[in-house]
């Protein structure tokens, strides 16, 4: 695949991001190990009732083919340290929207090591964030959040996710991914924060953190 993008996490954020990127002509590698559950359907926009129980990457691959006529690569696995470099090497950009903080740090570390732009996204409750990163040129995920939390305060299972929020944030992630893969750094290192309750949007340019592995 030429100038392909890796979509890590094909859920509430990965689905709408893929729906933007695929018809824009970006070849996709979809990486996820989960299966579609009925509770996913209100926000994971590539899936339908008949997909319940099917691997998300396979259901997404089918949907992208039927809706847009594009062939995406489906890789059913969790992203873990043992496979991350092999799965992400060669990508033009990584779109990371997983529900696991450890995977966010892993994707960030691999993106930095391989020099691949990455867009991180997350949603909990009514709140979502997007952070596009150009390795070596902008603040990275570890510049913003230094390390894994030591408690469960950030577990999305506590607060759930307001369905429409993920489509807003997923589209924003795709928009940033399209820019990053063209070398456009206008939003790189800007932490976008969207509050769906008040419909407020803020974007803050962040400096690279001294002591971060990404900073010389």
């Amino acid at each position: 695949m030429e100038r392909w993008a890796a979509v890590v996490g094909v859920g509430g954020l990965g689905c709408p991001a893929a729906e933007v990127l695929a018809p824009a002509g970006v070849p996709l590698r979809l990486i996820d190990d989960d299966v579609v559950e009925r509770s996913n359907l209100h926000r994971q926009t590539l899936f339908a009732e008949g997909d319940v129980g099917v691997a998300k990457v396979e259901a997404a691959r089918r949907a992208l083919r039927s809706r847009f006529g594009v062939a995406a690569e489906a890789v059913r696995t969790h992203l873990v340290p043992e496979n991350a470099v092999d799965l992400l090497a060669g990508a033009s950009v990584i779109v990371e929207g997983t529900d696991t903080l450890a995977v966010k740090f892993l994707a960030s570390d691999v993106a930095r090591t391989l020099g691949i732009p990455v867009v991180h996204g997350a949603c909990v409750g009514w709140h979502g964030t997007v952070l596009p990163v150009l390795p070596g040129r902008s603040a990275c995920y570890r510049c913003v959040f230094e390390d894994l939390p030591d408690d469960e305060m950030t577990n999305c299972a506590i607060a759930g996710v307001y369905g429409p929020l993920t489509s807003v944030l997923g589209a924003l992630m795709a928009a940033d991914a399209l820019r990053l893969r063209e070398g456009d750094d206008a939003t790189a290192g800007h932490l976008a924060r969207y509050d769906g309750w008040s419909q407020s949007f803020r974007s803050t340019a962040l400096a690279r953190r001294r002591g971060c592995p990404c900073t010389p």
Binding site: G14, D99, K104, G121, C123, V124, M153, C156
Partner: peptide, 10 residues
């Protein structure tokens, strides 16, 4: 003053 924690979910 805005509090922004690391979050995961989607």
């Amino acid at each position: 003053l805005t509090v922004v924690p690391a979050i995961a979910g989607g």
